[in-house]
Design a protein around this nucleic acid. Structure first.
Lengths: 172, 172
DNA sequence: TATTGTTATACTCTATAACTATA
DNA sequence: TATAGTTATAGAGTATAACAATA
């Protein structure tokens, strides 16, 4: 985890940058650095609690949570597109979850290349336990923000999401 | 990268949760999921550009940016505390940066266990180039937010920072 | 005894690419 | 030819722990 104990500056050396950058640009940089810092702090704590309390990882939890949204099962390639991760990664994570008995892999009869992934009853139960804890953790942090702050953040994130998508898919 | 193409729901299966959670808790969860999603999108794009355009990584850049703030050099153990990373990691990252000629390791005469790390002139020059690009990247995203959104975000992050620190250092 | 830094080890996650079986 | 999935490989990034040198 990084950048957490510095007042404003961090990875890009804000003190120096304040001299070089326009105040507006500097403000943008500060915003990103603080964003990154808070996010890492929370995400790493969640990772560590998932490990400690449920012996699992964030990607494994994310896959299980995705599967919950497709009770009829989802094809591995669809899942990998959905989660923006390569096929091989899904295979690996699915293997672990199957070994633990949380997920089952079912061959499709009409397309013998494909298989779908599905939560097992055991997996559903486990996911429910994890989700419950996870949601409490998140609420224990975000629940301390005022409604104004939450709404402001949500609005800003909605904007940010659009622009971050442009950023990652540049038009060229 | 994950969770980016879903409207609201994502890792924790919001649609289901909306039935189970209080609207407030649900809003907190949504906020966090969107926060995570946007952050990952931007961070991964930055990582990929750092690799492509400067053949470096985010942690290596972060270490260099830290070193810029200590022109007189900083002890490795201080740096590892500062960056909240273990000693061994700093050794590894420093080794890479030294091999590339961006950083020098200087033994302290008065404490022969310790050494300090310092940017070389080549490292300073490289850091400047990277920072310049990095700042442009960040501004190209955050610069598209209105001043209101930036200010709102900054205010919310300031609050969030406090609470995320409580979250990671629970009082027990 | 405690601290500094290195080394060894292991694990998770990721991407790339070669491969197979099937379509 | 294209697609679905697996496997192999490599490389970040991280943590833990043993260790040597020094304080």
């Amino acid at each position: 985890m990084l950048l957490t104990d510095l007042p404003f500056s961090s990875i890009a050396g804000t003190p120096d940058l304040e001299g070089r950058l326009s105040p507006t640009a500097c403000q943008h940089l500060r915003t990103w650095l603080r964003y990154l810092s808070c996010g890492r702090l929370i995400e790493n704590e969640i990772r560590s609690r998932l490990r400690r309390e449920f012996n699992t990882t964030l990607p494994r939890y994310e896959v299980m949570a995705q599967l919950e949204q497709f009770p009829q099962g989802i094809k591995m390639s669809d899942l990998s597109r959905h989660m923006m991760v390569t096929n091989g990664n899904i295979t690996g994570i699915a293997d672990q979850l199957i070994k633990e008995g949380f997920v089952q892999r079912i061959k499709l009869p009409h397309d013998r290349r494909s298989s779908i992934l599905k939560l097992t009853p055991k997996g559903k139960k486990q996911l429910q336990a994890i989700s419950e804890a996870h949601n409490e953790w998140v609420c224990s942090v975000f629940g301390q923000l005022s409604d104004q702050h939450i709404n402001a953040m949500m609005g800003a994130l909605q904007e940010l999401k659009k622009h971050s998508q442009d950023f990652t898919q540049p038009t060229h």
